[in-house]
Design a protein around this nucleic acid. Structure first.
Lengths: 335, 335
DNA sequence: CTGAAAGCGCTTACAG
DNA sequence: CTGAAAGCGCTTACAG
């Protein structure tokens, strides 16, 4: 709510602010045709600025009445369910949408018109336009981003990537590995940088020099893991362990090992990142760094609820802790 | 809309039907305390019967304004995203909820109060009470159920399980297998029966007698596949191929084979069911029967939209076709 | 195009 | 507990 305004804006208050009559504002809200373009633009701007919500969309303040959008880049990642599960646990009424369908043409306006009281955006950058509009409309948004660090003016929830990289690598060092490779995501991703820095620190603490040949970047998918692992395993002095950037990548690594005739973990130890449900189902079951996706969703829901009901945030960025889950894809190196 | 009523019910029309004043109905709708229990009950009943939607919840008829609940038994299955993806594609505004959080105490009432125009229920039986209330409230519901056959009075979308069982088994027969085992889900599930019947028919067509020892039932999860496969592989005349009831089960079978020192597909061929995204990521990549979950979701969304906007259905039950996806977990039997 | 006027659907004191 | 009355927020025909 803009500071100069007490209570929710009404058609009357918008009309007063615009210096037009109430019926005119009504027409703009309802998309009627008989409004001069200039008038429409003026009123439209004020509606947005004051975050006007049509009566038919107003909700009570009970959490289950607060409609909130959860926006995924694409609803195809196994992350999605995990995060969604957490967000729904927070008690808000969660509307799912994927970017493809929800971002055109004016995302923020459609959120307001649809009676959404806020949004949670998963793993995607907000465009500058979106940010500007959001700011103007006072519509709270929380970013769940295990991948990147959003601008510090947007509240966000992430995971402790550096610590995850550290613990995965320490685990491999403790098993006796010395030739440890790491596959990160695309170089531009901050999460990836953080994990690789954790990897470096673990090696340095163990007195093992970092071999640049063993530090790779690939996409976070099966293919990325598969391709980089194939290259790594073809090295003259090949690694005895690979720390992958995601569980999906780790499955690609395991497949590359299988195709190369190497057994996991006998010939090669593999550590993933995420701990998706399917990490337990791989053969062998995957040792991986657990990223608490459901908890991140729950936390994002709580933060958003806080923002909607007018609370203040202690911190714009929250990172939940990762931890290593040891299963059967890691073992001491072959002697 | 009840047939005797033209247009949407209003507080006034409900009041007239109940023989009370409009303010009294308003109080009931808003849960105010100063209403006699008998009056409240009378009005409540009429509100439900006439499917009264509070103004604050009324929506336009554009698909993106039609709020619809998608209810999962639990938001933990990898199916969930697939189905959800399909439903959101249908253009409806999808609110996710899992049974745990959404079924108490009066699910139907809370749907109406929340302005939902319909619901899609995934893989779960509606209670008799729910069905009765739904019938009374004229709130359309579609069941997506690849698992069971709901009562024929509820529109439902499923998959062709029998044909799936047939094609999976025929594939194994064509590769030269004769000792082919099948693991179904729990015996009470109709989908499971249908697939096993498809399996039987394929064997009979090939002139292979059905060995009751090779027909097992386990839960649909990793554990079910693992446990049944371990028993099967311990048989004196063990099978050379196993057709599992789900991809997750198939991963359990592969793990049991690995632990038993058998290679897939060299010593044992494995076929799954579902074709979840992760079927491509297993090692070896899984041959499986594709169940078009996203298409089923899309279809359910379309059917629900049809029902909401007053259309008639050609058929109460729709089954979308399954088909075999051949990857690397099947090969001719060891010679 | 604009807005005065009528009116709809609802809520909320308040008198009984 | 109930409902007549005032009034809020909005929409819609219609005069200008």
């Amino acid at each position: 709510m803009p500071p100069h305004q007490l209570g929710r804006p009404t058609l009357a208050s918008i009309a007063a602010a615009a210096g037009v009559s109430l019926p005119t504002v009504s027409k703009v809200v309802n998309g009627k045709q008989d409004v001069a373009p200039a008038t429409r633009a003026l009123v439209q701007g004020l509606l947005e600025e004051h975050n006007y919500v049509p009566v038919a969309r107003r909700s009570n303040e009970a959490p289950e009445d607060l409609l909130v959008d959860v926006v995924f880049t694409a609803l195809d990642s196994p992350w999605a369910v995990e995060i969604l599960r957490g967000v729904t646990d927070s008690g808000l009424a969660v509307v799912v949408s994927s970017l493809a369908s929800s971002r055109e043409p004016d995302w923020v306006q459609s959120l307001i018109a649809g009676g959404r009281r806020g949004a949670i955006v998963v793993t995607s950058r907000l465009t500058a336009t979106d940010q500007r509009r959001l700011g103007r409309s006072h519509l709270p948004v929380v970013v769940i981003d295990p991948v990147d660090l959003p601008g510090q003016d947007v509240p966000s929830v992430g995971a402790t990537n550096w610590a995850g990289g550290l613990s995965a690598t320490e685990h491999l060092v403790e098993l006796g590995h010395r030739r440890i490779a790491v596959i990160g995501g695309p170089e531009s991703y901050l999460c990836s940088r953080a994990r690789i820095d954790g990897y470096r620190t673990a090696l340095e603490r163990a007195g093992i020099p970092v071999d640049p040949d063993l530090v790779r970047h690939g996409n976070f998918h099966h293919e990325g893991g598969h391709d980089e692992a194939r290259a790594l395993l073809a090295l003259p002095d090949r690694p005895t362990a690979i720390f992958a950037g995601s569980d999906e990548q780790a499955f690609g690594v395991i497949e590359a090992a299988r195709v190369a005739g190497l057994s996991v973990p006998g010939d090669l130890s593999v550590v993933g990142f995420d701990d998706l449900p399917m990490a337990r189902w791989s053969s062998p079951p995957l040792t991986t760094v657990r990223q608490p996706l459901a908890d991140m969703g729950r936390m994002a829901g709580r933060v958003l609820h806080e923002l909607i009901t007018g609370g203040r945030l202690d911190s714009q960025r929250l990172e939940l802790s990762t931890h290593l889950v040891t299963r059967a894809s890691t073992a001491p190196p072959p002697s």
